[in-house]
């Protein structure tokens, strides 16, 4: 699994990609990677399934089970999918570069929200035993 700190950097890079469709695809994948971290930290196996055609939405649904506050990122996930659709269905649109930059901000929000929750709960990369590794990597 990609370390969370790498995901933040990758979101920035994807948001500036000259190939908007590739950037949007990468951002969607990074969103999935963030959700995989949440699930793995809860000893769940991330689903390979899809919801409304998107694995991201299936992963969110899986992550929200038994954790109502996790739904605070429900619309963030849906906005990510919305922007992905906007970009990939009409890549030649004049607003595509702006839409990609906005999609990166939405992906960053998902990353910040979930990494913040993991850190608060001392889970995943933020558990006591892995903290020194993370601190040194930073």
């Amino acid at each position: 699994m990609r370390p969370l700190a790498e995901i933040a950097t990758a979101i920035d890079v994807a948001g500036r990609s000259p190939d908007a469709v590739a950037g949007a695809t990468e951002l969607l994948g990074l969103g999935e990677a963030v959700l995989e971290h949440w699930l793995a930290a809860h000893d769940d196996v991330p689903t390979a399934g899809a919801r409304e055609g998107f694995r991201l939405l299936a992963l969110h649904r899986q992550g929200a089970g038994g954790e109502p506050s996790f739904n605070a990122c429900r619309e963030t996930c849906r906005e990510l999918v919305f922007h992905y659709n906007l970009i990939t269905l009409d890549a030649a649109h004049a607003d595509t570069a702006r839409r990609l930059a906005m999609m990166a901000m939405v992906a960053m929000h998902l990353y910040l929200f979930i990494s913040g929750k993991l850190e608060s709960a001392k889970l995943g990369e933020f558990c006591c035993s892995s903290r020194p590794v993370r601190a040194n990597a930073g």
């Binding site: 506050s69 605070a72 990122c73 619309e75 963030t76 906005e79 919305f82 922007h83 906005m102 901000m105 939405v106 960053m108 929000h109 910040l112 929200f113 990494s115 913040g116 850190e119 608060s120």
Partner: peptide, 26 residues
């Protein structure tokens, strides 16, 4: 796109930096 996104209110005291980054993104 972030009209219903979390502002990090619950983290304000326990982890101010996360709240600041969430708000900055908004």
């Amino acid at each position: 796109p972030l009209k219903t996104a979390c502002c990090g209110g619950a983290h304000t005291l326990s982890d101010s930096d996360t709240s600041t980054r969430l708000v900055l993104n908004i």
